[in-house]
Every structure is written in C-alpha cells, then in structure tokens.
Simulated scan of single mutants.
Amino acid sequence: MKLWTVRAGKYGEQEQTCVDNSVITIAWNEMPDLKTFKSREELFKEYQIIYKEASNVKAGINAGQIWRFANEIALGDIVALPSKTQPSIYIGKIIGEYKYQKVAPDTVHLRPVKWLKTIPRAEFDQDILYSFGSLLTISQVSRVQAAERVIALVEGKKRSTKIDTPLIEETEEEFDVEQFAKDQIIKLIDRNFKGHVFAKLVDQILIAQGYITQVSPPGPDGGLDILAASGGLGFDHPRICVQIKSTTAQVDVKTLRELQGVMRKVKSELGLLVSWSGFNHKVLQEAREDFFFIRLWSANDIIENIFKYYENFSDEMKAELPLKRFWMLVEK
C-alpha cells in the first residue's frame, strides 16, 4: 500500500468535483483516453504533439505523471488531496481502475475513490506535510510508513513509536516552500493556542485592525467569544459578534446558526465565525448567502492576518508567537 498526493488544479478548481463525485482527477484534458497508450513512451510522444512543450524535460515529467495516474496508482492505495479552500487534507482509498468519463466540463480523467476522512493539516507529522508540498500534480509520498501513519490518523489512533525520518530528502521534485513555512506556524499554533488562548490570538488581529474589543472570560460563553466595534469607545459601527472554535473538527451548520442567533441577541450587524479546522460544505454554502453579514475564518485566514498585522501585535503575543519576516528570490 502506497500513499500518493494528488492535486485538483492549481487553485483547487476540481476540488469540489472530486469530493462530490468520489474521484481523483488530473488536468491535461486534451489528452485522449489514457487506456489507449500501451507504454509511457507512446504517451510521451502524444503529449508532445498536443502540448508542444519547449522543454523535453518538462514534457517528460508531465507525461510521467499522467502515466502514473492511469497505471501506477494501484487499487487499495491511499491518496491525499490537499484542499485549497480549507486548512485540511482529504484522505481516500483507490477503489477503481482509470476511467475516461466526463463528470464536469474540466474533469475527464478519473480514478474512483472512497473518501475516508478530512483531516486538518496540523494533525499530520511535519515530514509527511513536507512531502504533501510537492508541486507536482501526482507524487508518491516516500516517507517511512507514510501510508500506515496516515491510516492511523484516519482511524483516530496514535502511533506507539516515533518514526525517525529526515524532514528534507534529496529529490528532483520542487516543493512549496511557502506552504512548508505556514505548516510549521500552524503546528505551533495548534499546540500552544487552544481554547481561550486562541481567542486572545483572534482578539490581537481585531485590535490590530483598529477595533475596540471585549473578550469573554474563560468558561461557557453562550456562543459569544468576542465583541468588536469601531470608535474610540467601541460605540461606532460596524459592530461584530465573534464566535471561535479551536477544535480539530470542521464546524457544521449548527454552529453557524447559533452565531446568527447570538448576533440578534446582542444586536450586532455583522458576525465572524472562526474555526481553526475549517468548515464543512454546508456551512460554506449557507455563508455565501449571508456574505454581507457573516465572514468565515479558517486557519488559512488566521495565518494571512497574522502575516499582515503581526507588527502591530503586543510584545506579549509576539513572545508567544515568535515570527521573522524574510525575502527570498523566486526562480522562474
């Protein structure tokens, strides 16, 4: 049993199609039915005719990924689909051979999958997260006992022994360095900012944005974690009611509706629902209907706001979350 990373478009274009149809897919939709190719070399020649890559190396890499998708990913293998919209990774098991079938305008090359669980990024070991950062559409995760460790997470089990494996290995693949850095920060926040401490972090972001805030004390809060408003005394508009969840489970629509009720109770015009582990699809759908009244923040949004407002954080918060900005050259 192997573990593979399979992406659903550079920006997650096919992500929801994959989840809704229980499949994984690749791009290169101009390629014909991949079952017609008897060898990798035959597929490579057709790829060059269709895409006319300037570089034979790039053509070879892409043709190799296409061949791997159709022929090397085996029944029973585990696949990881990193979400572009949520701070989570979909984990599934391959249950069928390659199919050439149009299930959406941009989705024709398929492998049937049984989705097992959606797991927050912070739950994975750092070395596996690093491998998930490969920029290839299809890549095998070669870490020690990678598939077994991911299945243990799916089953809610803790590994009894520590796996000693290097974080960075020699490889010809390119990796998403930015995501690697974000994952390290996410894991630190996941360890050290739980419950009321996480609410303090969200409060720091709101204060840095210029709001006057009131944080509920530790303990039961009735769905009201922070109140925020503009003006010197917090009497001006907008007035925001904030509900915060730092659990490892995605928030469901019940929590969203609880926030809507609290907003009416405290007479706030706007609401902010913060979930460290993201939101299920139903929440995302309903929140779109309340676009002008409610915002959703997941771990991705928290990280982006930390980067944007970190310089305005208190010294105490900076000590708890020590970060340093640096620039690096991006090779094209």
Rank of each mutant, 00 (worst) to 15 (best):
V253A: 14
V253Q: 13
V253E: 10
V253D: 11
K254A: 12
K254I: 05
K254V: 07
T255G: 03
T255Q: 09
T255H: 12
T255K: 07
T255S: 12
L256P: 00
L256R: 01
L256M: 11
R257Q: 14
R257N: 12
R257Y: 12
E258L: 10
E258D: 12
E258Y: 05
E258W: 06
E258P: 07
L259Y: 04
L259S: 07
L259T: 06
L259F: 09
L259M: 06
G261D: 12
G261S: 15
V262D: 06
V262H: 06
V262E: 02
V262Q: 10
V262L: 09
V262W: 04
V262Y: 07
M263F: 04
M263R: 05
M263N: 08
M263L: 10
M263C: 11
R264Y: 05
R264M: 03
R264G: 09
R264S: 11
R264V: 00
R264F: 07
K265D: 05
K265E: 08
K265M: 07
K265C: 02
K265S: 07
V266C: 04
V266Q: 03
V266S: 00
V266F: 03
V266E: 01
V266I: 01
K267Q: 09
K267D: 13
K267P: 00
K267E: 10
K267R: 08
K267G: 08
K267I: 02
S268F: 00
S268M: 01
S268A: 08
S268N: 12
E269C: 02
E269V: 04
E269W: 02
E269D: 05
E269F: 01
E269A: 03
E269H: 02
L270I: 09
L270Y: 05
L270C: 04
L270G: 01
L270A: 02
L270T: 04
L270D: 04
G271Q: 09
G271A: 08
L272F: 05
L272Y: 03
L272K: 03
L272I: 04
L272V: 06
L273M: 07
L273E: 01
L273A: 07
V274I: 04
V274D: 00
V274A: 00
V274N: 00
V274P: 00
S275R: 02
S275G: 13
S275L: 11
S275A: 15
S275V: 09
W276C: 08
S277I: 06
S277N: 11
S277G: 10
S277H: 09
S277A: 14
G278K: 00
G278P: 00
G278M: 06
F279R: 07
F279W: 06
F279A: 03
N280H: 10
N280I: 02
N280E: 12
N280Y: 03
N280D: 13
N280S: 09
N280R: 05
H281L: 12
H281D: 13
H281F: 08
K282E: 15
K282V: 15
K282H: 14
K282I: 15
V283Q: 03
V283F: 05
V283A: 11
V283W: 01
L284I: 13
L284D: 11
L284C: 13
Q285N: 15
Q285D: 14
Q285S: 14
Q285V: 15
Q285W: 14
Q285C: 14
Q285F: 14
E286I: 15
E286V: 14
E286G: 13
E286H: 15
E286K: 14
E286Y: 14
A287I: 08
A287T: 08
A287N: 11
A287D: 06
R288Q: 12
R288C: 10
R288D: 08
R288L: 07
R288W: 11
R288P: 01
